Computed example of a mutant assay.
Amino acid sequence: MAGIGVLEVSDATFDQEVLQSEQPVLVDFWAVWCGPCKAIAPIVDELATAYAGKLKVTKVNVDQNGATPSRYGIRGIPALLFFKGGKVADQIVGYVPKDVIEAKVNQILA
């Protein structure tokens, strides 16, 4: 379900791809059965394209990877977590319009 420029990460690759990333990282926690996740996916894909080289965009399927969502207290999806320097810098839970997500991205990159 990951679009162009979006990296699927798992419990096994999360630390390497997200926490050790030199760029800020947007992590989209999602599931196949989640309607709002499907609605937000094209926005996440657009951001991956728009911020290529500045922001790493990743997805974690919560049904296939249980350890990472529980480690970050993910109870509702879609959940977007913004990581900077290996730490959670911000988060959005639930469906929100693109401009809300973009505003957070710009804050993280500032």
Rank of each mutant, 00 (worst) to 15 (best):
V32P: 00
A2M: 02
D45Y: 07
I77G: 13
V60F: 13
L80Q: 05
F82L: 06
L55S: 09
K59F: 11
C37G: 01
S70K: 14
V18W: 07
I43T: 15
K38E: 10
G73D: 04
V9R: 04
G66C: 06
I40T: 01
Y72M: 06
Y51R: 09
A39C: 00
Y72F: 15
A52G: 03
Q107K: 14
N61R: 03
I43N: 04
I101T: 11
G53V: 07
Q20H: 14
D28M: 10
F14E: 09
D99G: 01
W33A: 02
I40H: 03
G3S: 06
A110C: 03
S70G: 02
I4G: 00
I74G: 12
W30H: 09
K98L: 04
P24R: 08
C37P: 00
V93H: 12
A31W: 15
Q64K: 04
T68H: 09
D11N: 05
V18A: 09
V25N: 05
A41E: 13
K104G: 02
D45R: 01
K56W: 01
T68W: 12
L7W: 10
I92E: 03
D90N: 15
Y95H: 12
F14S: 10
W30I: 00
I101D: 03
A39E: 07
D63N: 12
A110V: 08
T13E: 06
S21M: 05
P78K: 03
A103Q: 13
I101A: 07
V60R: 05
V6A: 01
